[in-house]
Design a protein around this nucleic acid. Structure first.
Lengths: 206, 206, 206, 206
DNA sequence: TATTAAACGAGACGGTACGTCGCGTCTTCTT
DNA sequence: AAGAAGACGCGACGTACCGTCTCGTTTAATA
């Protein structure tokens, strides 16, 4: 007989409120940054009382972490395009777009914050960065399966290079270049992917 | 002919205070993180009144930016070790150590914040990231001079890869691994440098 | 038909806090004078946060004005002792005691300030001085009713004389005389009341 | 032999600055009241550095006390008009004008302040109020000399009545009435003087 | 005439209170 | 019981003055 979960008495939580709050949180964060990221503004933007907010998350950080997760995790899925290069271009393009988006900035920022205040946010760091890393790692595993790269090639440096170069590419981009990158992501992504491709290429046997 | 700047009237600012404040700011930040980074605590630690602090920087961010600059800029100098690989190992090691240090976390964070609030912090982004980037770029220029790499090899992606992979390497490092990295930086740095080396290697001529 | 005021939503203000703050304000003011009359000290003495204070009064002056009103207004009631002289002695004694009390000094001071910054504090001036004046005026109205004084005797100068002479009496009193005045108020009050009595006396008909 | 005061060496103080500072102080005080009465603003209005100010007076209060004295003391002189009523009208008119003037408000305010913070300002109270009182007292002395009033009539209550009623008259005056009082001072002063006159009149002999 | 020492303007200094704002909690009534 | 509203204690924000302290310049009397 299936467990009858106890179904708590009283008014049930409005399931809609979770989403509305996380959206509001990301919008607010993207707009104003961490300073100026106010609980009452988030609540107000979501059309919700503060109590509903604090019932779900203990403080600002936890709210933001949850919100970030909800948009960052989908990035970790990597459809098979048939070739290593295709897979990398595809993943890199999606990551680039993400980082060019206000919500992506938020991811970035939170990522770094999590590394800084490493006491409080360790789990987050593991979940977000870990997920993204393992997404890209899968690509290399598939490529090794296809025989495109040597199966004993160390993968971690390649993943870090790809992910990291995208990060720095966005960070070091002057403001006016952002629009350009949004329009023609491939042109920005290819040079970075090619670094990886050359580094991963089978060494020519003598 | 050298301009004789007119020496402003009134009591001159105590030059010592600048340094004491920036040191205090970095120590305070390293200790407590951004939250808990309080102007009055910085002032107190420096043994200085708040007014002297606010006379120099308009708010918390600007103080921190200036403080970060003072420790981050020296990273941009790249002594010539005689070979591309040696130069890269050297630069990467110094950057890794920097990012493993609380003050380095601050650099990182401010860097990202500057990319997010791109209105207020643009100059900083340009100064810090730009300086670090151009430091690494010099290394490749020197290598091209030596004939180690082709002089028409696009350098920017390589710089971004190196710098970025170091960043991600630290970010994705579980807490317990940090100590390990501090002790044996080379072991952590070499795989990343080798990605760059393989990508930069002269393509085998047919 | 009694209006049913709609009972505002949200948590209602703690009515106790009003009183505690006004008491604390008067005590603090009496102790330290205007300089040293600090919002945070008042809040602290009342065991209350600053926000609760500022939610009720916009600044120091308004807090003090409200506090003063609460102790000064009761002075305006003038019980009927049966004779003009008795009424005046009674009122004058109470006013003298009030001015000899630290809280009375505050009244005085605020009164004058209100006359000086006549833009901001007009309403106060009207309420406090007006109330006290009209209290004394009643006494003369009653006396005219009893036939003690001519009913077409101009009252305002008499009121101003009584009230004012008390004021100056206190102001010009050397410090050591204050204790004396507190112990034997009547001795200080009678000469001043007698000035009024003689001035108000029916002119002997020729 | 007349003392030759040692004539201090070095640059002598600019005697002009004293006056300019006291004027500036009174104007500033009249304009903004005690709060907003700022040393640097006084200095600025006088076109003088803060050091010149602090060299002459130790703090705000002392500056203000000195400034007030300089305008209030002349009030104490009471020219002989030949009759008690004439003397009183004259003195009262001058005092009324003084209190209707911004600088007079300042006197008033300082007077009261001095009574409140009785620790710090006692000497001032004595000097200012004392001087004004003794000025009016002289009038009664003269009148007794002329035989207008009994020489054993207690004078202090009369003085306090006159001075005080003027004070309250101004304090209780609605703003719009001030201009009226400035134009036609006598009309405002006479009723108050008459109170004194009736109270001082020789008791009709039986 | 040259020296000297205090007065001067300007403004930086260590403090402290201001009035504002946001935190995270608590209290009220409504759904 | 969940929810909207908003008051609560707390504490940092950035501003404005306090009274003190350098600075370099000006001003007389002295040497």
């Amino acid at each position: 007989m299936p467990e009858e979960q106890p179904r708590p008495i009283g008014r049930p939580r409005d399931p809609d409120i979770n989403e509305r709050l996380m959206s509001a949180a990301l919008e607010e964060y993207a707009q104003t940054g961490w300073s100026g990221f106010t609980m009452q503004r988030v609540a107000q933007r979501a059309g919700v009382g503060k109590s509903a907010l604090y019932r779900r998350w203990a403080d600002r950080e936890q709210l933001l972490v949850a919100s970030i997760e909800s948009v960052a995790l989908p990035l970790a899925t990597t459809p098979d395009s048939g070739s290593l290069r295709g897979d990398l271009i595809d993943a890199a393009t999606r990551i680039l777009h993400h980082f060019l988006d206000p919500m992506g900035w938020a991811t970035l920022r939170i990522t770094v914050d999590s590394a800084v205040d490493l006491t409080t946010l360790d789990p987050f760091q593991e979940r977000i960065i870990g997920a993204l890393n393992s997404g890209v790692t899968q690509i290399f595993t598939r490529a090794a399966g296809r025989g495109e790269i040597s199966s004993d090639l160390p993968v971690r440096p390649l993943v870090e290079s790809l992910f990291g170069s995208l990060l720095i590419h966005v960070l070091s981009m002057p403001a006016h270049e952002r629009d350009d990158a949004r329009r023609d992501a491939t042109a920005h992504v290819e040079p970075l992917v090619d670094v990886i491709m050359r580094a991963a290429a089978r060494h020519p046997s003598p």
